[in-house]
Computed example of a mutant assay.
Amino acid sequence: MEFAIQYWHWIVFGMLLILAELVVPSFTIFWFGLGAFIIAGLLALSVDISLSWQLLIWALSSTAFTLIWFRFFRPWMQDHTKAGIAREAIRGESGQVIRAPEEGQRGIVRFSTPLLGDDEWEFICSEPVSLGDRVFVLELSGNTLIVEKR
């Protein structure tokens, strides 16, 4: 009795590899699953391929998918915004004081363009500031800006 690998064996193998990607989130195993689907498609089209050729085609197609992903598509899909790097994104921005700090109360500065989604921020300044002064952002501390008057 001789055992022959059928197209559905490759489909199941491909699905198992793609499901394994849920456990190992590197987005690499996924491409080997797609390579298995290539072999399944060839076998479904009644192409008679020996097991050694199936394994070779699977390895080459999986490698090609992986290289194409990492070389061309992954760099294109990376986030190039400044989200998540708030300190660097807002340092040096200038705004106008619309409420001067008082005893027990922080001041409020307004920016012409929103910083991190908001155009008004509470601030702390080591120097005395008054209404209408221009201040520059040094750092973000929680939900409060640390500013300086220049």
Rank of each mutant, 00 (worst) to 15 (best):
Y7G: 05
W8H: 09
W10H: 08
V12E: 02
L17W: 01
A20Y: 02
E21L: 00
S26H: 05
S26K: 04
S26Y: 03
L34R: 01
G35H: 06
A36V: 14
I38K: 00
L42R: 08
A44F: 07
A44R: 04
V47Y: 10
S50R: 13
S50I: 12
L51V: 09
S52W: 09
I57M: 07
I57Q: 05
W58L: 07
L60G: 02
L60F: 04
L60K: 02
T63P: 00
A64E: 04
F65R: 04
F65I: 05
T66G: 06
L67R: 02
I68M: 05
F72P: 04
F73L: 15
P75R: 08
W76M: 14
W76S: 13
M77H: 06
M77I: 08
M77Y: 03
H80L: 11
T81P: 01
K82Y: 07
A83R: 00
G84I: 11
R87K: 09
A89H: 04
A89S: 05
E93D: 00
I98F: 10
R99V: 12
A100I: 05
G104A: 02
Q105H: 01
G107S: 12
F111D: 06
L115H: 14
G117A: 08
F123H: 08
F123A: 11
I124C: 09
S126G: 09
E127P: 02
V129A: 12
F136A: 15
L138R: 14
L138M: 13
S141C: 10
N143K: 14
T144K: 10
L145Q: 01
L145H: 01
E148G: 09
